[in-house]
């Protein structure tokens, strides 16, 4: 155990933790939204994220980068980022809707048990990973350096770079928009209504199937934006990239109280920070051990997670 690094590089670890947390949060929200309306853990959601990273990669590939170029000027980067970011959001969103129709809707219509849906989710996840392994050759795909990672300014031993700022600010904007969607639109009202009481929503004239599709779409779009940030920050992807981040995002959602949007957000940032601090103090390979010990502890003490399962009361 070595606390000296935590003390000397606290802010560097914190900034990186926030960046990691922001990316986890964008994935985590997909788990939580779907659980909110369907009471189903969509285990294939991590693959929706993976599809987003692949989309970013393929869009950028079209521009013929070799990876040896200098980073782009800011305005060019902004244009390209918006292009691949929105492409990833659209593709991930559509993929999530297709997933819902193919893997879950039929089971739901037939009144199958939750367990069947869960197995279907895991099957869909394996299917997508294997398909993309074939397509991508199962290799690490290298994303070119598009934005300069030179230090903008130094703060308490932490180097602040453009990519980190982009992830934190970009994610904050998306969280704000999500909050508006959930609380100030008809769609948001529908999502909250279905998550509160599905039968009553039907009686009130809510088209539940449509709301569920939109929820998957929303989760997919968020994961798509998350994948764009991920690619800018980590600059690499592969067919099973979703596995680790999926586990982190799912853990964050459960930690905060699955089904609760606010919980998923706080859970994600807590997890991101916690993983960085644990890595510094105990060693990198301990971070997952400690994370899961805390998760089990939280579930033992407060099974509904830190903020409880309540999408309808959610505040972003």
């Amino acid at each position: 155990m070595d606390f000296s690094i935590l003390v000397s590089d606290f802010w560097a670890l914190t900034i990186d933790g926030l960046v990691v947390g922001a990316i986890i949060a964008l994935v985590s929200l997909g788990y939580t939204l779907v659980y909110g309306v369907l009471r189903l853990i969509n285990f294939a959601h991590s693959e929706i994220f993976m599809i987003g990273t692949m989309t970013c990669y393929w869009v950028v590939q079209r521009f013929g980068f070799t990876g040896y170029e200098d980073p782009l000027p800011l305005w060019k980067f902004a244009g390209l980022f918006l292009l691949f970011g929105f492409a990833a959001a659209v593709v991930s969103g559509v993929a999530a809707v297709i997933l819902e129709i193919v893997a879950y809707r039929r089971l739901r219509v037939l009144g199958a048990s939750r367990l069947s849906s869960l197995i279907s989710a895991i099957g869909a996840s394996f299917f997508l990973v294997e398909v993309f392994q074939k397509i991508s050759g199962a290799k690490n795909l290298d994303f070119p350096r598009l934005i300069s990672k030179d230090t903008l300014f130094e703060f308490q031993n932490a180097y602040i770079t453009q990519d980190k700022l982009l992830v934190i600010v970009g994610a904050a904007v998306i969280f704000y928009i999500l909050n508006r969607v959930i609380h100030h639109t008809k769609l948001g009202l529908g999502i909250r209504a279905v998550s509160q009481d599905e039968r009553a929503s039907i009686l009130m004239g809510v088209n539940v199937n449509r709301i569920i599709s939109y929820t998957f779409l929303l989760g997919g779009v968020l994961a798509g934006f998350g994948s764009a940030f991920y690619m800018v920050f980590y600059e690499t992807t592969k067919a099973n990239v979703g596995f680790l981040i999926g586990i982190s995002a799912f853990t964050a959602a459960v930690l905060g109280g699955i089904g609760n949007v606010k919980g998923a957000l706080y859970g994600s940032f807590a997890l991101g920070l916690f993983q960085q601090y644990t890595s510094a103090v105990l060693g990198y390979n301990w971070k997952d051990v400690v994370t899961f010990v805390i998760l089990v502890f939280v579930l033992l003490v407060k099974p509904t997670g830190l903020f409880g399962e309540a999408l309808q009361k959610a505040r972003v």
Binding site: I5, L13, V241, F243, Q275, Q276, S279, Y284
Partner: peptide, 11 residues
């Protein structure tokens, strides 16, 4: 499969 080396670099 590690992609996040930031804490290792901090060390």
């Amino acid at each position: 499969g590690t992609t996040n080396f930031t804490s290792v670099v901090a060390k």
